[in-house]
Design a protein around this nucleic acid. Sequence first.
DNA 1: GCGACAG
DNA 2: ATCTTGTCGC
Length: 267
Amino acid sequence: MDNNTNDIESENDKVKEEWIKIQDELRNQLIEKDQLSFNLKDNTLKYIGGVDISFVKDNQEDACACLVVLEYPTMKIVYQDIEFIKLELPYIPGFLAFRETPFLIQLIDRLKQSQDNSKFLPQVIIVDGNGILHPRSFGLASHLGVLIDIPTIGIGKTFFHVDGLNAKDVKKQVELSCHKGGDFIELKGESGKVWGLALQSNDDSKNPIYVSIGHRISLETSLEIIKTTTKYRVPEPVRQADLKSREFIRLHFNNTTSSSNSNSSSK
DNA sequence: GCGACAG
DNA sequence: ATCTTGTCGC
């Protein structure tokens, strides 16, 4: 029986090794500077995207993927696509991209192919997950960005330990240095590398968000965009994607499945 | 060996 | 990720 668990463990290690190779390869295509189809100074940023996946409770595989496109800077939703999906892989810290990326790409592809809506293809996408703020500098936002070749910004809501940085010290630093919305600190690790920023979203948000480069954008431009699209704790594009996907689950999944406490009838 | 660990 | 009421404040 111990042999079984050992076999499984070594199988998992093999898979992780393969995944690491894949990401090492993809990372060669990662661009950590501005390579954009717009300039923030001259109103050429029109469409900004947000993606998120929400889950059905007590369920590791039934979920809802959402892509929204907002008009900049009005933040009005001009396009949305929401669908039920079945996750095929578990959540493994450090390998989130392999779990979620296939479904997000599908949403982007559908928009690209849309006869009427392809004009809404976002010029930059804000992703619910880190960019290069990641053990191998290649989180979900970067992985997705490279695969779809669209600029992305990574947003984390909880800190991911990397390069000697840890949540406790980071939050302590934020407490000391950030007092109002827009204040931020650099996330500089032991190696000296700047992995991203901890940003106070608004004047009364105590809990920071973590901004990092996804793909084809600089940290400076990322910050500028995040600041101008954030009203609540998380930027409006990802917030809307989150709200839409949760609502979809509430409306179409809940009473549709047995799952839990209905009126316990028979017995 | 032990703990940490995006969503 | 998800589970949840009240509560503080504009």
